[in-house]
Computed example of a mutant assay.
Amino acid sequence: MPKQKTNRAAAKRFKKTANGGLKSANAYTSHRFHGKTKKQRRQLRGTSMMDKTNLKRYRELLG
């Protein structure tokens, strides 16, 4: 049986952590910042852990 290929789009967006979780960038960070508070903008910087409801689907994409 052939090897499973990694989905390259997912590999560029998500990183696996040592304990098996996934981290990714936050949504809502590309435009329209005038409608967001300073606190929202500050907390959207950097990466965050992916929600457990999505983990199974995205782990399969990463192979």
Rank of each mutant, 00 (worst) to 15 (best):
S30A: 09
K5W: 01
Q40C: 13
N7P: 00
R59S: 02
S24A: 15
T53W: 04
R59V: 12
S48L: 01
M49K: 15
K36E: 04
H31K: 00
K12Q: 05
A11W: 02
H31Q: 09
T53R: 10
F14P: 01
N19G: 11
K52E: 01
K36V: 07
H34W: 06
Q43E: 07
T17W: 01
D51I: 15
Q43F: 12
K12N: 07
Q43V: 03
K38L: 11
K23P: 11
Q4V: 08
N54K: 15
G46F: 02
F14N: 03
R45A: 13
A25H: 05
D51A: 15
F14G: 03
N26M: 13
K56T: 13
R57H: 10
Q40M: 13
N54I: 07
D51Y: 09
K52V: 07
Y58T: 01
T6R: 08
G21P: 08
K36H: 06
P2S: 08
K36N: 06
N26W: 10
R13C: 14
T37R: 12
R41H: 07
G21A: 13
F33K: 05
L62E: 00
T29I: 02
L61C: 02
Y58L: 14
L22A: 05
K5M: 08
N7A: 00
R32D: 14
A27L: 10
G20W: 09
A9K: 11
R32S: 08
T37N: 06
E60C: 13
K12Y: 02
R59D: 00
R57S: 10
L44W: 04
G63S: 10
K12S: 07
T47V: 04
K56N: 04
H31D: 14
G20P: 00
Y58R: 14
S24I: 13
S30W: 04
K12L: 13
R41N: 07
K38F: 05
K23F: 06
D51Q: 13
F33M: 06
M49A: 10
T47Q: 08
R45C: 14
K5L: 12
K23N: 10
Y28H: 08
G46T: 09
Y28N: 11
G63R: 15
M50T: 01
K39H: 10
D51L: 15
Y58A: 09
G20Q: 08
R13I: 10
R42D: 03
R57I: 12
M1A: 05
L44F: 03
H34D: 14
S24R: 15
K38C: 08
K3I: 01
